Every structure is written in structure tokens, then in C-alpha cells.
Amino acid sequence: MIRLFKLLLFLGSSMNNIGKKHSQKWNIIIARKLSGLEEAMRIRRLRELQNTTKVKKRQPLRCGKVSGRLPVPDHILKPPYVNSSVLPELSCEPQFHDEEGIARMRAACELAARVLDYAGTLVRPSVTTNEIDKAVHEMIIDAGAYPSPLGYGGFPKSVCTSVNECMCHGIPDSRQLQEGDIINIDVTVYLNGYHGDTSKTYFCGNVDESMKRLVRVTEECLEKAISVCKDGANFRKIGRRISEHAERFGYGVVERFVGHGVGTIFHSEPIIIHHRNDKPGHMVEGQTFTIEPILTMGSIDCVTCDDGWTTLTADGSPAAQFEHTLLITRTGAEILTKC
């Protein structure tokens, strides 16, 4: 009887220890699940906040009248696609540069950055995007360069101006900017045979906080993407960094439009994907390309207008974009499109 009692005590103690171990194991599993659930709920709350934030109601973007192409003096060196309305094919060769090429890339990109900064000073209510285009055109021509968008695949203007729900490739026209608009201005110049490409989203007058947040986070996404760039780094890191940061705020990352190699050719490999992806390939010292993420408050789907260029969010939600041209170095990336 005593032996039986001791055996029962032993079994009880063992079961209790096993129970504690199982309890600890389940506690760990539950804790992990709760941690994941909390993160999912946090993202959901951010999305709900984004959707419920009061945004000043505005009319859908309406395109204005597009004026004719501005003239370029004969002495300005022009890219080879200018005399054709056919959209050039993407070059399959990445672009690398020797010392002279890098010096020319720096000059083209620095000019593009100065032109973009100047264009930003023109943004205010009542100004038309056509007026911005004219000012940009004149500044580029005066610097002895060619406005790369002009004539590219038939594009009729010297700069892209994308307002509110326009994701990209907006054609400057007679529409006046309104109080509370956001506008992306995309400048590319062709100087001494090299393209420099950059863009930034600006505020027009008093912009509401939800739009300001979208613009701020989009710029932060570009900065975080640039921080992972260096010789030998995988291209897919770019999309992961952008997606991670955008998702923290409940924003969508547009998948249709990408960054690209740039140099003597306007658009080439590598294709830079801004969302999560498994694309192979890595960066190489001396290589130049753009990173240009577009974030939206709502749908990442888009519709292109009859002009073949102007691309809007499918649900009319605002979009923002930032872009830099980079030179890959052994230890990082040099931002070429800085003044």
C-alpha cells in the first residue's frame, strides 16, 4: 500500500512536471501567435485609420488643354529617339561607367536636381502645370541640355507633372493647381550624352495631414531603399525595404511602374522592382540606376487615360512618388541627383 502510494506520488509529480513543460511550451507558442496577431491588428488599425482619416473632398482630376511642343535650338545635343514617335525598347544591357562617364553622369544629374528644385518653387495655387513645363524647358535649354521626356515615344512635354491621384506620367496642361493638391514633378535632362533622372512630390498651399503623411512616408521608403544599395547587394532588398516601411503605415506600393538603369540610354536593365519580389541579380560597382517608388492611400491598380501616358489610381486615391539616380560604389550608393 505504501509502495503504491509512493508510486502515485511519483507519477503525480512527473505528470505535474510534464504538465509544466507542456504549459511552458504552449505559452511560448501562444505568445508567438499573440505577437503575430498584435502585429496584424496594428497594421489593420493603421489601415482603418488611413481609410477613416478625413480628407478634404475634392473633384476627380480633370485634364486641361495641352499646348504644342516647345522648340529646342539646333545646337543642343539630342537623344536618338527624338525624331521618332515609337516608344524605344528597354535596353537589355546594364550601364556601367568609367571615370569620364561618371563625371558626365554627375553633371547631368546635378543639373536635373537643380531644375527640380527650381520647379518646386513654382508650385502654388493658380499656377498651371503648363507654366511649370515652360519654366523647366527654358532652364534646361539655357544650361545647354535637352529635356529627355520631350519626344520620348511621342511624349509632348519637357517634364512630367502628376497631381493627386495621378501616379505618374502626367502631361502638363492648362489646369491650375488647387489649394491642397500634391504634385510630383519628374525631371530628366540629357547633357553631353548622359541622362540624369529625378522626381519629388510637392505640396500646393495648405495640404491636409493625411496627404502630408503619404508624401513623408514615400520619401522615407526611397531613403531606406538607398541605404541597402552597394556593390554585391541583391536587388530584391530594395523592394523588401520599401514594402516593409510602407506597410507599417497601411500604404500600397504600386507594382506596375519600376526603376531602371540610366546613363547614355534613358531606360535600360536592371529593372528595379519596388515591392517584395524574388528577382535574381545583384548590384555592381560603377553601375547607375534609379529607384522611384510610388505609394498610394488605396488601390495600387491603375488606369491610363486616352493620351496613353497619364496614369491614375483606379479608385481615385492620392499617390506620391520620389526618385533618385544612384551610382553604386564598393561601400554604398552615391546619390547623383543632389544639388
Rank of each mutant, 00 (worst) to 15 (best):
T52V: 13
H275E: 13
S67Q: 10
V66N: 02
K279N: 12
L150Y: 01
E244W: 03
V258F: 13
T296L: 03
P80F: 05
S199Q: 07
Y118I: 00
V303G: 09
Y81I: 00
T52E: 15
A119I: 01
M105Y: 09
Q59V: 14
D231Q: 05
L122Y: 14
I171K: 02
K25C: 08
L177D: 02
D301P: 03
G170H: 01
L70T: 07
H275V: 08
E223S: 09
G170S: 01
F235L: 12
E179L: 08
N51S: 10
C339P: 10
S174C: 08
T311R: 03
R236H: 11
T264P: 06
D278A: 02
L77G: 10
E247P: 10
K134M: 14
T310E: 02
R248P: 06
M297K: 11
K21T: 06
L295V: 09
I328G: 00
R104V: 04
S158R: 01
L111Q: 04
E138Y: 11
K224T: 03
L295R: 07
E165H: 09
L122A: 02
T198W: 00
I76H: 06
S317D: 01
K224N: 05
H275Y: 14
H274W: 04
T310P: 04
S227R: 11
E220I: 14
Y202V: 09
P318L: 04
I183W: 02
E269N: 15
A107G: 09
K338E: 13
S317I: 00
N17H: 08
C168G: 01
P270Y: 05
I294Y: 07
R276I: 15
D208C: 13
E223M: 11
N164R: 06
G153W: 11
V66P: 01
I272R: 11
I140Y: 05
V66Q: 00
V258H: 15
V82K: 02
T121Y: 02
P270D: 09
Y202D: 11
P318N: 04
G332P: 07
T161I: 01
Y152L: 12
G193D: 06
P79W: 06
L150W: 01
Y194F: 12
P156K: 00
Y81D: 07
H137S: 14
L61P: 11
V136A: 10
I171Y: 00
F249T: 04
H324T: 07
M167Y: 05
E93C: 15
D117G: 10
G101I: 12
L90M: 15
L7M: 14
Y190A: 00
E39V: 12
H97P: 00
F322M: 02
M41G: 03
I185T: 04
E39C: 06
F155H: 13
T311N: 05
Y146M: 12
L87D: 12
L214F: 06
I273Y: 13
C339A: 11
